[in-house]
Design a protein around this nucleic acid. Structure first.
Lengths: 389, 389
DNA sequence: ATAAATTCTTGACGAAGTTAATTAAATCTC
DNA sequence: GAGATTTAATTAACTTCGTCAAGAATTTAT
């Protein structure tokens, strides 16, 4: 069901993108305020905002909510009209598809899951198209033109190709193209962690920070780094591999071939392996290990603390090298954070160098849907071709 | 001896800076070639190049050296006229001043040293002014307008203030201002490692790499990171502190308060301390340790190998997080590199993740003058106010 | 009311780059 | 060796995007 090009104003000039993102991320703001924050002239803001207002993306608020009631003409703040357009975001894992529909602010309006029964490209594309069809009903359907996909692995956003995805066993799959044919939507592809970083930078903990890092802890341990507002991509496609920073000289072997990598100590699998060693129960389940650690089982508590320590060392390495303004630690292991957090903070505080320790360290569980929201945020971002993050 | 503003064309437009730096760093190139490499139109290159030619910074070469002798009008390559202007660069250490005068290509034309007999601001400023006066004779003097200063520590380049320099014991010294008064030159201040990174990026191993890292090993261990052509500065002024990446869990205490930092194992001081421990000779000198290690003293060889290992781990952390195209390891311990290099490479090869290991690892001694050359390169860079690197 | 303050709009202008046509200088073809 | 072909450089008209300065709009202060 291919559809015609979206009936909406393209965002072309840099100033237009700047003005729009400023209003998008910093709530209702008057034109002068946008000018002050961006360094543009207020005339430029007026001009740049007009097409958006005409196209229904922005609106002028009545000047009610004024905060500074001094003399002078009251401001007419510009605000996003979030319902002007909807975006679909899907996160692909090895086992299932998690999809959401969001508005312009990346607030979730609808969501759905699908189990993945196979990893065959054709199969996955069909499942994705089905999911999208399920998600887009009524008004949502009429105002959705963009689909964002988040996959773990090596993803070439520019060309829309999945270069290598270990979970799916894919190499060089032109997924964006296939999905555009299957859904008629404009498709943007991005690495999952990077997609999440975009969402964080725009609507989450990263708002207002010119540099920040997002670290996800779970099956794997990865991170996305934003410097000067740009995502670090790495010359050879590798970057943000905090999971493979060596922190324990002579420590456990990692599947990457190294030793003492953070991931070899603090991934879900590594923790479980160690817990089984410590207790001498080869059949111990993660759930049991967590329960018993919470119940005060010292050896098990130490396993989790050891993982927290490794993560703290990795974070210190990251922060000492980068000096980000903020660091967000998040991930799948949502429910077990209470067992790590203290140790992460303690180790980080000791090993962070000088004023680098001043960076805000946010440790926060991450609802699974958030990944899909990140994918949608990438789709929102595709409105601005110029913008790189 | 304040002097009037330099009699030379300011570089204003971004295109002008792009064209000039392209010719500067990529040797003689024809206008079309510049256009191809930068994405500008050839018309734009023609326009941008003209003022430089008129001001004597660029010249048109005869079309002799043509390499592709096909049909068509031969190219008239643009080339830098390196002698159009000279630049002074001075590196300040705790003990002395090392100064050079370079041409536009940062090639050294004159050099001089001064011992520093005290760290009093007035004293240092006077010594610097003397050194500059000594360096600038004859033609050099007539065509030098800019002075670059490299200092280790926390330096605010934009304001020209040394915020904190442990070696000098300075806090918030407006050195640029003081030196402009004392010398009449336009002064640019930069952190020493960052200055060196600039020189490397323009004229050294970093040429053509959009991202690279420079690591210096010596009394301290530091690094400068260039991502997307921009130097990473860190939100709180801290970045590139590879010396304080924790690589040996539970390892030796570092003066930063952490444990197992690279610097606590591989700095000159740490190596000497360890060598004295190992041999049981508290009076052992570094020179003796080096000689005996070279001579085959196993325990001492292991001390150096251990340092190399720590550096290799730090490099792996850096590369896994950043994915730079190239890494240059350099530093003061010029003469002892033979004792490290193998181990650095071995450890790095094991711990670098996936294709990140493909990054070029250059390990190279660093003549002391090179630091001063970096300072001069920063001065050259000050020609382009727009450029941020 | 009038003045002062502040926001927003407008139109003239300017900077910087593009495209397309033109000129220039070589080689290739017959 | 005359003309075609090819590539380089320049020129000129135009486009785009922004600033600036003047003025209109709308409030508070006196």
């Amino acid at each position: 069901m291919p559809r015609s090009a979206p009936a909406r104003a393209p965002i072309t000039s840099p100033a237009a993108a700047t003005v729009f993102t400023t209003v998008l991320t910093e709530g209702p703001v008057s034109r002068v305020d946008v000018a002050r924050r961006t360094g543009l002239s207020s005339a430029a803001v007026t001009k740049a905002a007009r097409p958006f207002i005409e196209a229904g993306y922005l609106e002028e608020l009545a000047s009610e909510g004024r905060t500074a009631p001094g003399a002078g003409r009251p401001a007419n703040p510009l605000a996003i009209r979030p319902d002007r357009e909807y975006f679909v975001g899907v996160k692909i894992t090895g086992d299932d598809l998690i999809g959401v529909v969001t508005d312009l602010r990346a607030d979730v309006r609808a969501s759905a899951h699908h189990a993945l029964t196979g990893h065959d490209v054709g199969h996955v594309v069909r499942a994705l198209a089905d999911l999208v069809g399920e998600l887009l009903t009524g008004t949502l359907r009429e105002r959705a033109y963009c689909l964002g996909i988040a996959v773990s692995g090596d993803v070439d956003r520019a060309s829309g190709v999945v270069r290598y995805s270990p979970f799916l066993g894919w190499r060089d799959v032109p997924l964006a193209e296939l999905l555009e044919e299957a859904t008629g939507l404009t498709v943007t592809l991005e690495n999952d962690v990077k997609a999440l970083a975009v969402a964080e930078q725009w609507f989450g903990e990263g708002v207002g920070a010119s540099s920040f890092a997002l670290v996800t802890v779970g099956t794997g341990i990865g991170s996305a780094l934003v410097v000067h507002g740009d995502l670090v991509r790495g010359a050879h496609g590798v970057a943000g591999e905090i999971g493979h920073v060596p922190v324990a000289d002579g420590g456990p072997s990692c599947h990457c071939g190294g030793q003492g990598c953070v991931e070899a100590i603090a991934s879900t699998e590594a923790i479980l392996t160690r817990a089984r060693q410590v207790t001498g129960e080869p059949g111990l389940s993660m759930d049991d290990a967590v329960t018993r650690a919470r119940g005060g089982d010292e050896p098990l508590r130490e396993v989790f603390a050891g993982a927290g320590h490794a993560i703290g060392l990795g974070l210190a390495a990251l922060v000492n090298l980068f000096g980000p303004e903020r660091v967000v630690v998040s991930g799948e292991g949502v429910a077990t954070y209470d067992l790590f957090e203290d140790q992460i903070r303690r180790t980080f505080a000791v090993q962070a160098f000088g004023s680098a320790a001043r960076c805000g360290l946010v440790i926060r569980p991450l609802p699974f849907e958030e990944w899909a929201r990140g994918a949608a945020a990438v789709a929102v971002q595709s409105l601005f071709a110029s913008e790189s993050v």
